[in-house]
Nucleic acid binder design. Structure first.
Lengths: 329, 329
DNA sequence: CGCCATGCTGCAAACGATTGCACGCGGACG
DNA sequence: CGTCCGCGTGCAATCGTTTGCAGCATGGCG
């Protein structure tokens, strides 16, 4: 790793300054010089020391990504999209797991901020005040969340919910249970409102099943309420919970979709391979990850308005939804 | 971000050198000075500019992690473990996805190398020559793979395989199909050998079902051969494939475990929530990720011998394995 | 033929931290 | 009381790159 610009300059018989310019601002040097420098670079296998450049320019060429929990199956696809896009932009990704502690998020941003050009906050649990603080430290983009002046990438749930409800209605369901996620979660609130709106449009009744942990266990826990309420169809906060619910219902001797129809949310990978495969509302996670990186890389001039990028979600009909046992259920 | 060591030094009324020492080598300064500097740091909210330090010391405080595919459910848990450990060591993680292209791995290492203190290569597809080249660029640790002089973290498959075969034998299975992964994969070879050895010990017959893609589709594709060979029990290269196989068998009207027993491998999260839940050989991915980071952070003096850290795998009995229809199947 | 604009190039000063070296001061010891 | 030792501190060089400024040609134009 000992080859510096000095060496290159010496070999090309120019000054360090010229060598630097030949590489950074090719237009500023003559063609002949540029070629000589380039040749020296190739021969020596020179690669610039990023820290030195960063020290001057203040840009690190690295973006941070904070996810609440790497084990949450929602994030891998998002990371994949982000990573592809980052590579495309010639930028690296610094990964951090907030370990589901909302109080931990801001400190995390604090340590990350000096080392990156911007941070992607995925479904941050932190409050508005903390977001403000974060934004003061570095450029921020949000996923699955909006905040007045910050750039954000979020799904447009309406299309998907509409599709799901329409589908259920066509199967004679009129009374649809909603299994909620954590009560205080930002997306829970949003999703509820969207469901209410779509249900209103489509004239179906929404029954609140309650709030549950966004885990397989949480889904299992919802089973009892679902049965007590004698629901024929439920829309679940996310696929992981839907999978838990599916398992619990099966264990209680209920058949899906013959007895109960289940619609999940997110379309995580395993939703397609459950038995029956899960009907769900697909959220384009990969595209969202990619868009978020674009937002961070782009000229901060557009930062002004704090654009929100909306991604259409769509209902995906699979095997977990079927005709209501009693019409109107 | 404008606060430099200079400012701190000025406020504490010491030289920059002393300020630096107060923070880096506390033993070198008097208690009074150290406290004054610390106070200045706190009041100003100073945080050191890493690039400047890196420029001098050559250490970036960042480790690279290269995974073949972020969407492969094997890796999230591994990343989680790595990330936890990295944070514990005060080190950051640079994430890179090789996008399943073996030729892409070395270039990736090349771009990563100058920016990191070491790289974690997860299940690298590259050959021995490329690994040598990589090792020349930076410190390397391997996961799921060994290479003479490199530090590596790999599962000890024997215990798990032994458990699985013993379990199957206790259910009267004597003839066990092995659904293989990609023929040229390093771990495929290893797993095959381990299976052969354990089968030998336990006196069960191993039937080769062939090689398939390590995906749900690959697992589905294996179904036909499994049926043709009239197998009563199969051990599958990984859980993802096992899930595919499970689905395909079900669709063909076969019941698991009544007709066929299936054992997966890895114990990914979704293995526990299939129907029936998948019996599998657990690989401690999180611990492996953590150990790999430890290996990279530790004093490179131990680098000499290229230690391999073995992690015990263990068979996990769930619902996909049952008594053989005909004893000896 | 002279002047000026223009295009390349080099000098040298940054950037913010770390670290070898030297200096001064005090106490301990002879 | 003199010498020496050692601790704590500051000076200044250094890491590798970028960049403002100035200098030097060269070529075009009047």
């Amino acid at each position: 790793m000992g080859i510096t610009l000095r060496d290159v300059a010496a070999r090309a018989d120019v000054s360090v300054a010229t060598a630097s310019r030949a590489l950074q601002k090719p237009a500023m040097v003559s063609t002949a010089t540029r070629e000589r420098v380039q040749q020296a670079v190739d021969e020596l296998g020179y690669s610039p020391n990023r820290s030195a450049r960063t020290l001057i320019t203040g840009r690190t060429g690295v973006l941070g990504v904070v996810v609440p929990d790497l084990l949450n199956p929602f994030y891998p696809a998002l990371l994949k999209g982000a990573q592809e896009r980052a590579r495309h932009h010639g930028v690296q990704l610094l990964l951090a797991d907030a370990e589901e502690t909302p109080e931990g998020e801001l400190p995390l941003v604090r340590t990350l901020a000096p080392q990156v050009d911007g941070i992607l906050l995925c479904s941050p649990r932190m409050g508005a005040k903390e977001l403000d603080a974060a934004a003061r430290l570095t450029r921020i983009a949000l996923v699955n969340r909006t905040h007045t002046y910050l750039e954000a990438v979020a799904p447009n749930a309406l299309s998907g919910v509409r599709g799901a409800l329409r589908h259920l209605r066509s199967l004679e369901h009129r009374r649809i249970g909603v299994v909620g996620g954590p009560a205080r979660s930002w997306s829970e609130g949003r999703r509820r409102r969207t469901i209410a709106r779509a249900a209103d449009e489509l004239d179906v009744e929404v029954v609140d099943v309650g709030h549950f942990a966004p885990t397989v266990e949480g889904g299992r826990a919802a089973a009892e309420s679902v049965l007590v309420l004698e629901l024929g169809a439920v829309l679940v906060y996310n696929d992981v919970m839907a999978i838990g619910l599916l398992a619990a219902l099966r264990e209680s001797g209920f058949r899906v979709p013959q007895d109960i129809s289940i619609v999940g949310w997110d379309d995580i990978e395993s939703a397609a391979v459950t038995d029956p495969p899960l009907s769900t509302i697909r959220v384009p996670r990969r595209e969202m990850g990619a868009a978020a990186i674009d937002a961070l890389v782009e000229d901060p001039a557009a930062h002004q308005d704090g654009l929100t990028w909306r991604f259409e979600s769509a209902f995906v009909a699979r095997g977990s939804t079927g005709r209501a046992r009693r019409a109107g259920d």
